[in-house]
């Protein structure tokens, strides 16, 4: 580990997952798209880290790179101290069972030709675990499904919310340490979203999970996360505990994101500006040719010459709150 260790990584004994200088590049035609560049963060046992950003910011790619599906182009993923990027073959298959994933589209996450019971039992069958039937019934009951009546049906006989419950049951069957949730509620009806969010909180407590929760909805992320990391165009721009980050966003991008959320309660923000100051300008640049220096500078209202020359490093702005910006917004003006 000769790489410089960023200041926002914590020196603690209970770090379950540590991502160090993770980069993922995809070849697209003749170009190389830098989907993720030098992203580092850590997650402590029992913590939920929210990973937010808009489409194309690389948040889902980070989730998959943690699972080594596919492996990152550069960087390290330490899971319980073990560098997963060093593993291959059987050892990787073994270690990977400690991390599980659930996805955005619950219907395409389930093989339509298999019965629910077999889907949930898949991991147990692969590893030849004993008492698989008992375990399947237990996790299905835990997510609110009756194994006796639901087990023999096929996924298309269930609604989206129920399919997501099946996905959660499947991911829990192997008793993982870490659950990576990639937009788990975005495809669901509003009235079903809350059920799944509550269920995830319950499962986290019951099975002592550590979670990485990837989503674009800032309110959803705030609800479920202890810490939040904000990504823009393949880079981390701000990370910190949820309270501080939402109350005092220091990065201009985080500020723009928070100010854009339509709040369901008009009484709560009567004075909200509809035509306020411009928080964002222009268009998202191509990830194949990202801007030099700070990647947000082309759209930032505060950008200066230095932003084009120098890549901003993470710096501490408050207790457990770090921002990668040369000119962070530090005055205590809360956006909301």
């Amino acid at each position: 580990m000769t790489d410089q260790i960023p200041c926002h990584l914590r020196e603690r004994d209970d770090i379950v997952l540590r991502i160090l200088q993770l980069s993922v590049n995809f070849p697209v035609g003749k170009q190389t798209v830098q989907a993720v560049t030098n992203v580092s963060f850590d997650v402590a046992r029992g913590e939920t880290l929210g990973l937010v950003g808009e489409s194309g910011c690389g948040k889902s790619t980070v989730g998959r790179a943690i699972m080594q599906l596919p492996a990152p182009s550069a960087g390290h993923v330490f899971f319980n101290g073990q560098d997963m990027t060093d593993l291959a073959g059987e050892a990787l298959r073994q270690t990977r069972t400690g991390l599980q994933m659930i996805f955005q589209d619950p219907i395409s996450s389930l093989n339509p030709r298999r019965r629910v019971r077999d889907i949930v039992a898949e991991g147990l069958t692969i590893w030849g675990r004993e008492n698989a039937d008992t375990r399947v019934e237990e996790v299905m009951a835990a997510v609110g499904l009756d194994a006796a009546s639901a087990g023999d049906r096929r996924p298309h006989q269930f609604s989206g919310g129920q399919c997501q419950r099946i996905c959660i049951a499947r991911s829990l069957a192997l008793d993982p340490d870490v659950l990576i949730c990639d937009e788990p509620v975005s495809a669901l009806d509003v009235s079903v979203q809350a059920q799944i969010l509550n269920l995830l909180e319950d499962m986290k407590a019951r099975y002592h999970l550590t979670m990485v929760f990837i989503a674009h909805n800032l309110a959803v992320v705030k609800n479920i996360s202890d810490r939040v990391a904000v990504m823009y165009l393949g880079k981390l721009c701000e990370i910190g505990n949820t309270g501080s980050l939402y109350a005092r966003p220091a990065h201009p991008y985080t500020r723009a994101l928070l100010a854009s959320i339509p709040d369901a309660d008009p009484l709560a923000r009567e004075q909200a500006s509809i035509d306020g100051e411009p928080l964002l300008q222009g268009e998202l640049p191509s990830p194949a040719d990202p801007p030099s220096g700070c990647r947000f500078r082309t759209r930032c209202p505060y950008a200066q010459a230095r932003c084009a020359e120098e890549i901003p490093q993470m710096q501490l702005v408050a207790d457990d709150h770090y921002v990668a910006c040369h000119f962070p917004i530090l005055e205590p003006q809360a956006v909301r």
Partner: peptide, 19 residues
């Protein structure tokens, strides 16, 4: 049932049962 941006983290949501 909607998570609100002004509520603190881990606020229990009042989910609507059923679908």
């Amino acid at each position: 049932s909607i998570p609100r941006i002004n509520d603190p983290s881990h606020t229990r949501l009042q989910a609507i049962p059923g679908r």
